[in-house]
Amino acid sequence: MFEARLVQGSLLKKILEATKDLLTEATFDCSSTGMSLQAMDSSHVSLVSLMLRSDGFDAYRCDRNLSMGINLTSMTKIIKCSSNDDVVTIKADDNNPDTVTFMFESPNQEKVSDFEMKLMDLDTEHLGIPETDYSVVVKMPAQEFQRVCRDMSQIGESVTICCTKDGIRFSASGDLGTGNIKIAQSANVDKEEEAVVIEMQEAVTLTFALRYLNFFTRATSLSGQVSLSMSPEVPLVVEYKIADMGYMRYYLAPKIED
């Protein structure tokens, strides 16, 4: 028996929005620790990693480990049938292993819907992600990062991110010319969410495909802040924390000189 109840049901809409450009299907792994998902995009350039800890749910029961192969397009159709203030419960029954049920309850309990969705048999590969001490970790407002990625993609297909202790510089070039956006570390901020904080061991310069960075920024509604972790010659980690529950992380392989 698996049952996970989320009063803030709209969170699932945000999570699906945050994966839609990268994934069409994925396996949700459910265990007593929580629900997680790890999947590469179809071109194997990036990796999506979602963690929703069991203690972040309003009720959670998972008697045995369970892998649910889910067509995310189908799940999106079903989750769209919920209202933003609905309580969502995800259920899977051991006697019926080929389906998952989504139950939506209106806050006043007057409307209750349930949708049963067929599961898929997915042959997914899990990648082992090594623990890494990153040379640079930048925390910045998620909306600011979204804006930078959008603006840089007006200029070129790639962005070079250069991070020093003074700030983070995004540069792009293309047929029309070049663009640079430099964001300094905040001197002092009233609101933590508006801060730009740079933790640095050594300066790093890396180049990434803007197409993917723009896909990642679909997660902006999940968190006020985003963190960018970088080390020379390894994938960038873009992390959006999901309050009191876990995270949505994206790993993006860098562009490397031929």
């Binding site: 082992g128 994938p235 790993y251 392989a253 000189e257």
Partner: peptide, 14 residues
């Protein structure tokens, strides 16, 4: 032109 690397080049299949 720099080339796009593959993510599984960095993270091994478990």
């Amino acid at each position: 032109m720099p080339k796009q690397a593959n993510i599984s080049h960095y993270f091994k299949v478990r």
